[in-house]
Nucleic acid binder design. Structure first.
Lengths: 198, 198
DNA sequence: TGACAAATAGCACGACCGTTCGTATTCTGA
DNA sequence: TCAGAATACGAACGGTCGTGCTATTTGTCA
């Protein structure tokens, strides 16, 4: 009950767009107030502090990520198809979720990797969950006999993350048109080396 | 001639440390003035604008990167040894160069990937140079017969960059002790798949 | 419909931002 | 040594920052 909840999620929506464009440091009360049409103090009252606002936005981003990347991948069948589906959704998740500019989680990862505090802790938890979800999908592919049994799952997840980071870098900063192709090739090679046939 | 040059490089040294700790957005006149013991206006006079200061710091970081990563690798012999040397220096270049905290270039890459302007252009140029230097070393390994002749050099460079990004992420944000091992394993696998024997 | 709570606005605060300008200090070369 | 240039400082500016406080509006339920 209450329309406070409504405006709160409107604020968070604007916050995600802002974080996507210019990072979490740019998540300022004044900017967000202008963006939502609220007054500074009116917006402020919803969170109590800037840090709480940043945490709320971070958690919202993580939730949106799960909904956009992992949830749809559940429709693909268990094992390799689901792994490939996760990767495909992952690369274009900001587009799919309306965050036209970069991945807020990636931005936060660099901005807060050296700043202890609750934001950093939330961020680490989100990335650990991402890693865990990814490893589970990979494990299922192993169980289905689609990937080698002696595989180091954690290593595959590590390298997959790297491919996505390189993709973001090439696509966004360098604006390279071959970014998608390169990332896909890297991922295919990663899975090929992990398949039992070889 | 002149002591202006001296203080200027002292300022840039402090700026690199600051950017390593908290990113380029944290490169503020006031902070840097305190850090160097100069007055705000005194420091300001050396650059004329904050943006010029940021550009100078960015260029200094890129120069330091080349001196710390590529220059020492020239001592290793041409081909695979040099490629491996580059990678080894790359992973620990911030330690080697006294920037105890993250890589400023990596931070800048995320902070400015969506902000057009001279800073972004400088950054793109630096990363293109990095890519070029890396590809040259790889090409030499191909010419020496240490890597396959039909190799897509650019693809290898793309994936190597991804491995380094994943390493930064695991080592800094997640503080995972296996970060170095994972990155080295990924790089070894990358080179193994590119070697002619297979 | 009226009372009460929830939500929002208005205003002020101290701090820091980049920048300008006039002045003082320090260095340098003849 | 002494003039002139190079360098650094201090104070002030208009802005924006996060955050309190007090009103005022808005929504909700008996």
């Amino acid at each position: 009950m209450g329309k406070g909840e409504d405006t709160r999620s409107l604020i968070l929506e604007a916050a995600l767009a802002q974080a996507s464009e210019a990072g979490f440091e740019s998540l300022t009360i004044g900017t967000l107030a202008t963006r939502t049409g609220l007054s500074k103090s009116g917006l402020f009252a919803h969170f109590g502090s800037r840090e709480e606002l940043q945490i709320a936005a971070l958690d919202a981003a993580a939730e949106l990520f799960v909904d956009t990347v992992f949830a749809p991948a559940l429709k693909a069948e268990r094992g390799l198809p689901r792994v490939r589906s996760i990767f495909a959704h992952w690369m274009q998740w900001t587009r799919d979720s309306g965050l036209a500019h970069g991945c807020p989680l990636h931005a936060a990862a660099i901005e807060f990797d050296d700043k202890p505090g609750p934001i950093r802790e939330h961020l680490v938890a989100h990335f650990n969950r991402l890693q865990h979800n990814l490893e589970r999908a990979l494990t299922q592919a192993v169980e289905a006999g689609q990937l080698r049994g002696d595989l180091d799952i954690s290593q595959i997840a590590f390298e997959a993350l790297g491919i996505v980071f390189a993709y973001y870098h090439a696509a966004r900063l360098l604006q390279r048109p071959d970014a998608t192709t390169r990332a896909q090739a890297a991922f295919d090679r990663l899975l090929a080396a992990a398949s039992p046939a070889a």
